[in-house]
Simulated scan of single mutants.
Amino acid sequence: MIVVCEFISPSGLQRLRQAGMEVYYDPQLWQDRPALKARLAQATALVVRNQTRVDADLLKAGPHLKVVGRLGVGLDNIVQPDLEAAGVALYYPRGINANAVAEYVLAALLHLARNLVGAAAHVAQGGWNRTAFGGFELSGKTLGLIGLGEVGLRVARRARAFGMQVVASDPMRLPWEMAVEDLEIRLVSTPEVLRSAQFLSLHAPLTPETRGLIRAETLALMPRGSYLINTARGELVEAADLVAALRSGHLAGAVLDVVDPEPLPAEHPLRGVDNLWITPHIAGLSAEAQEAVSLRVAEGVLHLLGVA
Protein backbone atom coordinates (compact mmCIF):
# COMPACT_ATOMS: atom_id res chain seq x y z
CA MET A 1 0.00 0.00 0.00
CA ILE A 2 1.08 3.57 -0.75
CA VAL A 3 -0.17 6.16 1.74
CA VAL A 4 -0.46 9.75 0.49
CA CYS A 5 -1.24 12.00 3.46
CA GLU A 6 -1.00 15.44 1.82
CA PHE A 7 -2.18 16.94 -1.48
CA ILE A 8 -0.99 15.38 -4.73
CA SER A 9 -2.21 16.35 -8.20
CA PRO A 10 -4.81 14.08 -9.83
CA SER A 11 -2.29 13.04 -12.47
CA GLY A 12 0.23 11.99 -9.83
CA LEU A 13 -2.40 10.03 -7.95
CA GLN A 14 -3.52 8.36 -11.18
CA ARG A 15 0.07 7.37 -12.00
CA LEU A 16 0.41 5.65 -8.61
CA ARG A 17 -2.83 3.76 -9.12
CA GLN A 18 -1.98 2.77 -12.69
CA ALA A 19 0.95 0.74 -11.35
CA GLY A 20 -1.51 -1.65 -9.73
CA MET A 21 -0.63 -0.59 -6.17
CA GLU A 22 -3.28 -0.03 -3.52
CA VAL A 23 -3.24 3.70 -2.75
CA TYR A 24 -4.79 5.34 0.30
CA TYR A 25 -5.18 9.07 -0.31
CA ASP A 26 -6.36 11.58 2.28
CA PRO A 27 -4.83 15.06 1.89
CA GLN A 28 -5.79 15.91 5.49
CA LEU A 29 -4.42 12.76 7.10
CA TRP A 30 -1.24 14.54 8.18
CA GLN A 31 -3.33 16.44 10.74
CA ASP A 32 -4.21 13.21 12.60
CA ARG A 33 -0.92 11.55 13.48
CA PRO A 34 -2.46 8.53 15.28
CA ALA A 35 -4.64 7.83 12.23
CA LEU A 36 -1.62 8.23 9.95
CA LYS A 37 0.36 5.78 12.07
CA ALA A 38 -2.48 3.28 11.85
CA ARG A 39 -2.50 3.54 8.04
CA LEU A 40 1.24 2.98 7.90
CA ALA A 41 0.99 -0.45 9.50
CA GLN A 42 0.69 -2.13 6.08
CA ALA A 43 2.27 0.59 3.92
CA THR A 44 5.36 0.11 1.77
CA ALA A 45 5.53 3.81 0.76
CA LEU A 46 4.55 7.15 2.26
CA VAL A 47 4.13 10.35 0.21
CA VAL A 48 4.18 13.69 2.07
CA ARG A 49 4.60 17.42 1.52
CA ASN A 50 6.00 19.76 4.16
CA GLN A 51 3.44 19.33 6.95
CA THR A 52 4.22 15.74 7.93
CA ARG A 53 7.23 15.26 10.18
CA VAL A 54 8.86 12.01 9.14
CA ASP A 55 11.00 10.83 12.04
CA ALA A 56 11.80 7.68 14.02
CA ASP A 57 8.50 7.93 15.86
CA LEU A 58 6.50 7.85 12.62
CA LEU A 59 8.72 5.28 10.93
CA LYS A 60 8.18 2.81 13.78
CA ALA A 61 4.51 2.72 12.78
CA GLY A 62 5.46 1.53 9.29
CA PRO A 63 7.53 -1.64 9.66
CA HIS A 64 7.14 -2.44 5.95
CA LEU A 65 8.05 1.01 4.65
CA LYS A 66 10.60 1.01 1.86
CA VAL A 67 10.39 4.59 0.56
CA VAL A 68 9.25 8.08 1.49
CA GLY A 69 8.39 10.47 -1.34
CA ARG A 70 8.55 14.20 -0.67
CA LEU A 71 6.28 16.39 -2.84
CA GLY A 72 8.66 19.33 -2.89
CA VAL A 73 12.32 20.18 -2.51
CA GLY A 74 12.73 21.24 1.13
CA LEU A 75 13.63 18.48 3.56
CA ASP A 76 13.18 20.29 6.89
CA ASN A 77 10.37 17.92 7.90
CA ILE A 78 12.32 14.79 6.97
CA VAL A 79 14.77 13.47 9.59
CA GLN A 80 17.14 11.83 7.16
CA PRO A 81 19.30 9.99 9.74
CA ASP A 82 16.12 8.33 11.01
CA LEU A 83 15.27 7.18 7.48
CA GLU A 84 18.76 5.82 7.01
CA ALA A 85 18.61 3.99 10.34
CA ALA A 86 15.29 2.42 9.33
CA GLY A 87 16.56 1.47 5.88
CA VAL A 88 13.93 3.63 4.17
CA ALA A 89 14.80 5.34 0.89
CA LEU A 90 13.95 8.99 0.23
CA TYR A 91 12.87 10.46 -3.09
CA TYR A 92 12.37 14.15 -3.77
CA PRO A 93 12.40 16.10 -7.07
CA ARG A 94 15.39 18.38 -6.62
CA GLY A 95 14.99 21.73 -8.40
CA ILE A 96 11.76 20.85 -10.18
CA ASN A 97 9.83 23.93 -9.03
CA ALA A 98 12.77 26.32 -9.45
CA ASN A 99 11.21 28.17 -12.39
CA ALA A 100 8.03 28.84 -10.42
CA VAL A 101 9.95 30.21 -7.44
CA ALA A 102 12.20 32.35 -9.65
CA GLU A 103 9.18 33.88 -11.38
CA TYR A 104 7.62 34.63 -7.98
CA VAL A 105 10.79 36.51 -6.99
CA LEU A 106 10.55 38.56 -10.19
CA ALA A 107 6.91 39.30 -9.40
CA ALA A 108 7.97 40.46 -5.94
CA LEU A 109 10.70 42.69 -7.37
CA LEU A 110 8.24 44.31 -9.77
CA HIS A 111 5.67 44.72 -7.01
CA LEU A 112 8.19 46.50 -4.79
CA ALA A 113 9.37 48.72 -7.65
CA ARG A 114 6.00 49.69 -9.17
CA ASN A 115 3.28 49.00 -6.55
CA LEU A 116 0.50 48.19 -9.02
CA VAL A 117 -1.72 46.95 -6.19
CA GLY A 118 -1.45 50.22 -4.32
CA ALA A 119 -1.99 52.29 -7.46
CA ALA A 120 -5.05 50.26 -8.44
CA ALA A 121 -6.51 50.56 -4.93
CA HIS A 122 -5.90 54.33 -5.05
CA VAL A 123 -7.88 54.61 -8.30
CA ALA A 124 -10.63 52.34 -6.98
CA GLN A 125 -11.03 54.77 -4.08
CA GLY A 126 -11.47 57.68 -6.50
CA GLY A 127 -7.90 58.96 -6.69
CA TRP A 128 -5.73 59.86 -9.68
CA ASN A 129 -2.37 60.89 -8.20
CA ARG A 130 0.09 59.92 -10.92
CA THR A 131 3.20 61.29 -9.21
CA ALA A 132 2.62 59.25 -6.05
CA PHE A 133 2.73 55.93 -7.90
CA GLY A 134 5.45 56.32 -10.52
CA GLY A 135 7.76 53.93 -8.73
CA PHE A 136 11.25 53.22 -10.04
CA GLU A 137 13.03 50.94 -12.50
CA LEU A 138 14.82 47.72 -11.67
CA SER A 139 17.39 48.39 -14.38
CA GLY A 140 20.70 49.42 -12.84
CA LYS A 141 19.76 48.30 -9.32
CA THR A 142 21.74 45.67 -7.41
CA LEU A 143 20.16 42.37 -6.48
CA GLY A 144 21.85 40.36 -3.75
CA LEU A 145 21.34 36.61 -3.55
CA ILE A 146 22.18 34.50 -0.54
CA GLY A 147 22.27 31.03 -2.05
CA LEU A 148 22.98 30.37 -5.72
CA GLY A 149 21.46 26.97 -6.35
CA GLU A 150 18.75 25.96 -8.81
CA VAL A 151 16.47 28.84 -7.83
CA GLY A 152 19.16 31.45 -7.25
CA LEU A 153 20.66 30.96 -10.72
CA ARG A 154 17.24 31.29 -12.36
CA VAL A 155 16.53 34.47 -10.39
CA ALA A 156 19.91 35.86 -11.46
CA ARG A 157 19.19 35.11 -15.14
CA ARG A 158 15.84 36.91 -15.00
CA ALA A 159 17.26 39.85 -13.04
CA ARG A 160 20.05 40.28 -15.57
CA ALA A 161 17.44 40.42 -18.33
CA PHE A 162 15.97 43.41 -16.49
CA GLY A 163 19.38 45.09 -16.44
CA MET A 164 20.09 44.48 -12.76
CA GLN A 165 23.54 43.89 -11.31
CA VAL A 166 23.78 40.65 -9.32
CA VAL A 167 25.98 39.85 -6.34
CA ALA A 168 25.75 36.54 -4.55
CA SER A 169 27.22 34.41 -1.80
CA ASP A 170 27.26 30.62 -1.87
CA PRO A 171 30.06 28.45 -0.45
CA MET A 172 29.35 25.78 -3.06
CA ARG A 173 29.93 28.07 -6.06
CA LEU A 174 33.18 29.12 -7.74
CA PRO A 175 33.57 32.39 -9.65
CA TRP A 176 34.82 30.66 -12.81
CA GLU A 177 31.83 28.32 -13.15
CA MET A 178 30.17 28.75 -16.55
CA ALA A 179 26.77 29.75 -15.14
CA VAL A 180 28.33 32.33 -12.83
CA GLU A 181 30.54 33.79 -15.57
CA ASP A 182 27.86 33.84 -18.25
CA LEU A 183 25.43 35.71 -15.99
CA GLU A 184 28.18 38.07 -14.79
CA ILE A 185 27.37 37.32 -11.16
CA ARG A 186 29.85 38.74 -8.69
CA LEU A 187 30.54 36.17 -5.96
CA VAL A 188 31.36 37.83 -2.65
CA SER A 189 31.02 37.16 1.07
CA THR A 190 27.61 37.25 2.72
CA PRO A 191 28.39 40.52 4.56
CA GLU A 192 29.38 42.09 1.22
CA VAL A 193 26.12 40.91 -0.35
CA LEU A 194 24.23 42.56 2.51
CA ARG A 195 26.16 45.81 2.15
CA SER A 196 25.66 45.93 -1.64
CA ALA A 197 22.08 44.77 -2.13
CA GLN A 198 19.32 47.22 -2.85
CA PHE A 199 17.16 44.10 -3.09
CA LEU A 200 18.08 40.98 -1.10
CA SER A 201 16.58 37.61 -2.01
CA LEU A 202 17.13 34.57 0.21
CA HIS A 203 17.71 31.12 -1.34
CA ALA A 204 19.73 29.35 1.33
CA PRO A 205 18.74 26.06 2.96
CA LEU A 206 17.84 26.01 6.64
CA THR A 207 20.89 24.89 8.60
CA PRO A 208 22.25 25.73 12.06
CA GLU A 209 24.42 28.36 10.33
CA THR A 210 21.59 30.02 8.39
CA ARG A 211 18.91 29.96 11.10
CA GLY A 212 18.32 33.58 12.12
CA LEU A 213 20.70 34.80 9.40
CA ILE A 214 18.63 37.94 8.87
CA ARG A 215 18.59 39.64 12.26
CA ALA A 216 19.32 43.07 13.71
CA GLU A 217 23.10 42.86 13.13
CA THR A 218 22.85 41.73 9.52
CA LEU A 219 19.92 44.00 8.67
CA ALA A 220 22.05 46.92 9.86
CA LEU A 221 24.55 46.11 7.10
CA MET A 222 21.95 46.60 4.37
CA PRO A 223 21.60 50.00 2.69
CA ARG A 224 18.88 52.21 4.10
CA GLY A 225 15.79 51.97 1.91
CA SER A 226 16.57 48.47 0.64
CA TYR A 227 14.15 45.54 0.27
CA LEU A 228 14.02 41.91 1.40
CA ILE A 229 12.42 38.92 -0.35
CA ASN A 230 12.31 35.49 1.30
CA THR A 231 11.13 32.39 -0.54
CA ALA A 232 13.51 30.00 1.25
CA ARG A 233 12.57 29.24 4.87
CA GLY A 234 10.89 31.42 7.45
CA GLU A 235 13.43 30.49 10.10
CA LEU A 236 16.15 32.37 8.20
CA VAL A 237 14.61 35.65 9.40
CA GLU A 238 14.19 36.93 12.95
CA ALA A 239 10.67 38.33 12.76
CA ALA A 240 10.93 40.99 15.48
CA ASP A 241 14.15 42.39 14.02
CA LEU A 242 12.62 42.54 10.54
CA VAL A 243 9.58 44.39 11.84
CA ALA A 244 11.81 46.90 13.64
CA ALA A 245 13.81 47.51 10.46
CA LEU A 246 10.64 48.02 8.41
CA ARG A 247 9.00 50.37 10.91
CA SER A 248 12.14 52.46 11.32
CA GLY A 249 12.43 52.88 7.55
CA HIS A 250 15.80 51.17 7.39
CA LEU A 251 14.12 48.67 5.08
CA ALA A 252 11.66 50.15 2.61
CA GLY A 253 9.69 46.94 2.25
CA ALA A 254 9.71 43.16 2.32
CA VAL A 255 7.91 40.26 0.66
CA LEU A 256 7.78 36.97 2.54
CA ASP A 257 6.43 33.76 1.08
CA VAL A 258 7.65 31.78 4.08
CA VAL A 259 7.26 32.53 7.79
CA ASP A 260 7.85 30.81 11.11
CA PRO A 261 5.53 29.27 12.11
CA GLU A 262 3.23 28.39 9.23
CA PRO A 263 0.40 29.22 9.10
CA LEU A 264 1.01 32.61 10.68
CA PRO A 265 -0.86 33.05 14.00
CA ALA A 266 -3.35 35.90 14.23
CA GLU A 267 -1.32 37.78 16.85
CA HIS A 268 2.09 37.28 15.25
CA PRO A 269 4.32 40.42 15.15
CA LEU A 270 4.62 40.16 11.35
CA ARG A 271 0.94 41.00 10.98
CA GLY A 272 -0.18 44.59 10.52
CA VAL A 273 3.06 45.99 9.08
CA ASP A 274 2.21 48.38 6.23
CA ASN A 275 5.30 47.82 4.08
CA LEU A 276 5.35 44.04 4.50
CA TRP A 277 3.56 41.66 2.14
CA ILE A 278 3.15 38.00 3.15
CA THR A 279 1.89 35.21 0.90
CA PRO A 280 0.99 31.66 2.08
CA HIS A 281 4.04 29.71 0.84
CA ILE A 282 2.90 29.73 -2.79
CA ALA A 283 6.10 30.52 -4.71
CA GLY A 284 6.58 26.96 -5.93
CA LEU A 285 2.88 26.17 -6.32
CA SER A 286 2.31 27.12 -9.94
CA ALA A 287 0.02 24.74 -11.81
CA GLU A 288 2.90 23.57 -13.99
CA ALA A 289 5.22 22.97 -11.04
CA GLN A 290 2.62 20.99 -9.12
CA GLU A 291 1.94 18.72 -12.09
CA ALA A 292 5.65 18.13 -12.56
CA VAL A 293 6.33 17.55 -8.85
CA SER A 294 3.47 15.09 -8.44
CA LEU A 295 4.31 13.06 -11.54
CA ARG A 296 8.06 13.02 -10.78
CA VAL A 297 7.52 11.86 -7.19
CA ALA A 298 5.02 9.22 -8.28
CA GLU A 299 7.53 7.87 -10.80
CA GLY A 300 10.35 8.00 -8.28
CA VAL A 301 8.42 6.17 -5.56
CA LEU A 302 7.27 3.47 -7.98
CA HIS A 303 10.80 3.03 -9.28
CA LEU A 304 12.18 2.56 -5.78
CA LEU A 305 9.41 0.06 -5.04
CA GLY A 306 10.39 -1.83 -8.19
CA VAL A 307 6.95 -1.53 -9.82
CA ALA A 308 7.45 1.40 -12.24
Score class of each variant (00 low, 15 high):
5 C>G: 11
7 F>K: 14
10 P>R: 13
11 S>C: 06
12 G>I: 10
14 Q>C: 02
16 L>A: 07
20 G>L: 03
21 M>L: 15
24 Y>T: 14
31 Q>G: 01
32 D>K: 12
32 D>E: 06
40 L>E: 01
44 T>L: 04
44 T>S: 14
45 A>I: 01
51 Q>R: 15
51 Q>N: 14
55 D>C: 11
56 A>W: 10
57 D>W: 03
61 A>E: 08
63 P>F: 06
65 L>E: 11
71 L>V: 10
73 V>L: 00
73 V>I: 04
75 L>P: 00
76 D>F: 01
81 P>D: 04
89 A>Y: 14
91 Y>A: 15
94 R>A: 15
95 G>Y: 02
96 I>M: 09
99 N>M: 03
102 A>C: 06
107 A>N: 07
108 A>L: 12
109 L>I: 04
115 N>F: 00
118 G>L: 08
127 G>I: 06
130 R>M: 11
130 R>F: 03
140 G>D: 07
142 T>Q: 05
144 G>K: 06
147 G>F: 00
148 L>H: 04
152 G>D: 02
155 V>L: 08
156 A>I: 09
162 F>W: 15
167 V>F: 07
171 P>Q: 07
172 M>A: 15
179 A>M: 09
190 T>D: 03
195 R>Q: 13
195 R>P: 01
196 S>M: 11
199 F>V: 02
202 L>K: 01
204 A>T: 13
205 P>H: 01
209 E>F: 02
215 R>N: 15
219 L>Y: 08
221 L>W: 05
222 M>I: 07
222 M>Q: 07
225 G>D: 02
227 Y>G: 08
229 I>S: 05
229 I>D: 05
231 T>C: 06
231 T>H: 00
232 A>P: 14
241 D>N: 05
243 V>Q: 12
244 A>N: 06
252 A>L: 02
253 G>V: 09
260 D>L: 14
260 D>S: 15
264 L>C: 08
265 P>S: 12
266 A>N: 04
266 A>L: 14
267 E>Q: 15
267 E>G: 12
274 D>N: 09
274 D>G: 02
277 W>H: 12
280 P>Y: 04
282 I>A: 13
282 I>M: 15
286 S>Y: 11
289 A>V: 02
291 E>H: 14
292 A>I: 01
293 V>A: 03
293 V>D: 03
295 L>A: 05
296 R>P: 00
297 V>R: 09
300 G>D: 05
302 L>G: 14
304 L>A: 08
305 L>C: 07
308 A>I: 13
